[in-house]
Design a protein around this nucleic acid. Structure first.
Length: 419
DNA sequence: TCTGGGGTCCTAGGACCC
DNA sequence: TCTGGGGTCCTAGGACCC
């Protein structure tokens, strides 16, 4: 048995945890640089606010309806995510954190003990709510795709109250027939359109297709999805938990960047983020892409992207920073208003297979990164960083509606006033 | 005044080579 | 005069997710 647990409108709910004054108001959270709307709380959802619309286009509408707007407070969300995952971790023997607000649970030893999954789901929900203040939905299913579907039902369909279980033919049919085909994990708007053209409108109708035929018409991915909807596991647990094959860090600037020093320091910061993520999953990058671009919305679009190959695969931030230095002059172009930039590690291999470098002089390099990670984990990201990250700080994000860092900064600790 | 997210995986098609 | 194959690597862009 699998379960998928995720938070209801995570960013928006996180904003409400330490701010009771907005708890019963419509709240939306914006993406980086206050660009688009990325989270809409259930109260705001009733106003039919479109997700991922540019903020400036719906600003008036939000004001008219007294919607509370918040910038992304990633520090707060990351910390609340940790807390939430720590609680969830108690409830299964195998836990995989899939994204900042979603995690898969697998029950092997537990299966014999638990006879009422719905009740168990409510126990998880209550524990997370009590200990973090975050509302979550819990979906159980015999495959990861069915657990995803049940989770959708738990949060979106009436009569489930936050927990849904697919563990027999009856429950499977009851949920899948009420689910739009585009709400199936892996079926997006594009595939959805084609499927609907073929008369396949619900998840149930998709499940009734011949998997082999789906493979011919679309891809192995759709074939797998059909099988999984029928309770046939195609994604092994190891596959679900697989390491990333590519790791990117990209960001748009709060203000356009026109000078090479600022661009370089931004790229080194991305190198640091990619390096940490590589080390987290014990991977090394053989090659990285380094890119910078102007805005695609402007008349003259400029984009330059370069491949950089390391003689020895690495996850060392300082080595990647050196790569940035090497190529920055080829990427930078004068009189260009840079809008975003980033770094992606695209060819990864496992640390286990690391070739010893015959000419290496600094044997302690990996330990230096270990030390850096440990300090940043303890005292916050950015406590220790590469010198060239700090060359300038002018490219910071635009975050006009930022809430306090309630849980990660002494100065931001919430105060309760008693009269 | 001007403003438009971030991440991962996959594939079609072009460039280049022999 | 006109026509002919197959592999690798790279890039851009599509598709999906939240």
């Amino acid at each position: 048995m699998f379960a998928l647990v995720d938070a209801v409108a995570f960013y928006a709910s996180a904003e409400k945890v330490f701010d009771p004054s907005i708890r019963f108001k419509p709240v939306v959270v914006l993406t980086n640089n206050d660009g688009c709307i990325c989270a809409i709380c259930p109260i705001a959802r009733k106003l039919n606010i479109p997700k991922f619309q540019p903020y400036f286009k719906v600003k008036n509408y939000l004001e008219q309806h007294n919607v509370v707007v918040r910038s992304s407070n990633y520090e707060l969300y990351a910390d609340l995510s940790d807390r939430m995952m720590t609680v969830i971790n108690r409830f299964c023997d195998d836990h995989y954190v899939y994204s900042i607000d979603e995690s898969f649970l697998r029950f092997t030893g537990f299966t014999k003990i638990i006879d009422d999954w719905a009740d168990y789901g409510q126990t998880i929900r209550r524990a997370v709510w009590r200990e973090t203040g975050l509302p979550v939905g819990v979906g159980f299913g015999t495959t990861p795709t069915l657990a995803k579907a049940a989770n959708h039902a738990a949060k979106k369909l009436s009569g489930y109250n936050g927990v849904a279980v697919i563990n027999d033919e009856h429950s499977r049919q009851a949920i899948l027939t009420r689910m739009d085909v585009t709400d199936v994990w892996g079926i997006g708007s594009r595939l959805g359109k084609k499927l609907k053209f073929m008369g396949i409108n619900t998840a149930w109708e998709l499940a009734c297709q011949n998997p082999k035929a789906m493979r011919r018409m679309f891809s192995v991915v759709v074939e797998r999805t059909v099988s999984e909807l029928n309770g046939i596991a195609c994604l092994s647990w190891d596959e679900v938990k697989q390491n990333k094959k590519e790791i990117y860090s990209t960001r748009s600037f709060g203000e356009r960047v026109c000078d090479i020093t600022t661009l370089k320091s931004a790229l080194v910061t991305h190198a640091a983020i990619v390096g940490r993520k590589l080390r987290d999953q014990h991977s090394l990058a053989k090659r990285i892409v380094i890119f910078a671009a102007s805005s695609p919305h402007e008349e003259f679009y400029y984009k330059k992207s370069l491949l950089y190959e390391f003689p020895i695969p690495t996850s060392d931030t300082s080595v990647m920073a050196k790569a940035v230095s090497d190529v920055i002059n080829d990427i930078f172009k004068v009189n260009t208003r840079f809008y975003r930039c980033g770094i992606g590690a695209i060819e990864l291999e496992s640390e286990i297979f690391q070739q010893a470098d015959m000419f290496s002089v600094s044997e302690d390099k990996p330990r230096m990164m270990e030390c850096l990670d440990a300090i940043n984990k303890r005292y916050g990201v950015g406590t220790l960083s590469i010198g060239s990250e700090k060359l300038t700080q002018t490219w910071n994000m635009k975050r006009a509606f930022l809430s306090p860092h309630y849980t990660t900064r002494w100065s931001d600790i919430p105060i309760i006033k008693c009269n």
